[in-house]
Design a binder for these strands. Structure first.
Lengths: 146, 146
DNA sequence: CAAGTAGTTTAGAATGATTTTAAAGTGAAA
DNA sequence: TTTCACTTTAAAATCATTCTAAACTACTTG
């Protein structure tokens, strides 16, 4: 907990959004900086494109939904955010880019984080020839009792 | 392998599609029997709604795409098939209803089965109060080397 | 700093998967 | 056999996401 807070502080303060974007290989446009300011504060969050546009709007800014989608794809492709693997009808993104896992409440669709070290993935199968393991995602589906 | 074949044989032959549907609590309509004949042969398969409609057509039958979707939802809800948790733009279903896992080829979108016993899920986190574990799905994302 | 260019944003149209609608059809119970 | 709830259907509707192509803007080079 202490370390997490420390990390968030450092992450938040040491680099400007402009620097974070450049480091990720993205041209720091006005729109990307607005989004980076919202998303890249070191706090773990799940969100959809629509959620994000709402946040952009409540921050006093605005931008085309096409730009929101463009940015999310760019941010995801260069690893600034992650897309969660679920069969929900809307894409869900995650600001936590470290390997971790989720509970999925099957009734509500809610996703709850599980830290990587809470799951013991001892034996994994042999990775197919010519490929490498680019991340493991565990989903534990939850149903209400009774 | 021997056991699997034996199982498939039994599963295929012991119950008619009509009986399987009834056992699952579904009224055995003409359309559901056509689909059950295609899907419930004990062979593990991944497919989309469109894939299935193609198979229906090549079997000499035909049905509305709305019916295909209706049936898939019913079959899934009563456990005759499973929907795979991935963020692909099209829903992917699986005739293997036992707990198992997948490799996801991130370049092609291809899904490859992993048997449950190939992954050692020793420690799982505490399930939230009032819920129970309704299935664990592990996804190993693959990328091409180099 | 000026001009050029590649990359970006945008509104609106287009796409594609899935769902809805409402009317006609059908399985099963009595 | 009648009845009724459930199912199927074609077509329209919906909804998330992508495309289009024109206007804009960040960076490079001179």
């Amino acid at each position: 907990m202490f370390i997490e807070n420390y990390y968030q502080l450092v992450y938040k303060d040491i680099m400007t959004s402009k620097e974070k974007l450049r480091k990720a290989g993205l041209r720091p446009t006005k729109q990307r900086m607005i989004i980076a300011n919202i998303l890249l504060d070191g706090i773990n969050r799940h969100f959809t494109a629509e959620n994000l546009q709402d946040e952009i709007n409540s921050s006093g800014n605005s931008m085309s939904i096409a730009t929101v989608y463009n940015c999310l794809k760019k941010f995801r492709n260069c690893g600034l955010i992650k897309q969660i693997e679920t069969s929900k009808d809307t894409a869900v993104f995650d600001t936590n880019t470290h390997q971790h896992h989720h509970f999925l409440n099957e009734e509500t669709g809610e996703l709850i984080d599980i830290e990587d070290d809470e799951i013991n993935l001892k034996s994994l199968p042999k990775i197919p020839q010519g490929y490498f393991n680019n991340g493991v995602e565990v989903l534990i589906k939850l149903k209400k009792q009774d």
